[in-house]
Amino acid sequence: MASTLVKHAFRLVPVFLVVLMVVGAGTPAAAQIRCTQTLRECYGRAATRQSVWEMWAAGVDCELDYVQCARRAIIGR
C-alpha cells in the first residue's frame, strides 16, 4: 500500500515541476535561469567568430540579448 502511494507520488513529480515552471515563469529567478542558459549558448557562438573584434562585438550582442531577456521580470513595472 505504502509503495503504491510512493509510486503515485513520483508520477506527480513532473507535473509538479511543470506547475512550478508555469507559476514562476515571470519571476526574476525564472528569468535568470532561462536567460543565463541562452547567454552561455550565445557566448559559445560568439567565440567561433574569425577576429577578436568580431568576437567582442558578438559578445556585446549576447549581453544585450541577456539584458533584454531578463529586465522585464526585474525592472518592468
Partner: peptide, 12 residues
C-alpha cells in the same frame, strides 16, 4: 561570472 555581473547590473 560574467552572467552574475550582468545580473547584478540592473539599475533603476
Amino acid at each position: 561570472s560574467r552572467e552574475e555581473e550582468l545580473m547584478r547590473s540592473f539599475v533603476n
